[in-house]
Amino acid sequence: MRIVVDLNRCQGYAQCCYAAPEHFELRGHEILFYDPAPPERERARIERAQQACPVRAISIEPADLAEQDEP
């Protein structure tokens, strides 16, 4: 699956890191490092991270779009 984090918006609150520690990690004081292409089976956890983010910085490609519109 494909995700992106708006790092202008991200405040380094690290809520996503608690929700899905394998895919979101804080480095240094506040650099968010995340996996832009986590495996599809992790979707529930990634969605939990999205919901946990207080500034709604995480965008996730909906499952039903993944197979559509392939260039």
Binding site: M1, R2, I3, V4, D35, P36, A37, S59, I60, E61, P62, L65, A66, Q68, D69
Partner: peptide, 8 residues
């Protein structure tokens, strides 16, 4: 791995 998610 940096492909952007489609949102619509």
């Amino acid at each position: 791995s940096t492909e952007l998610p489609r949102l619509v």
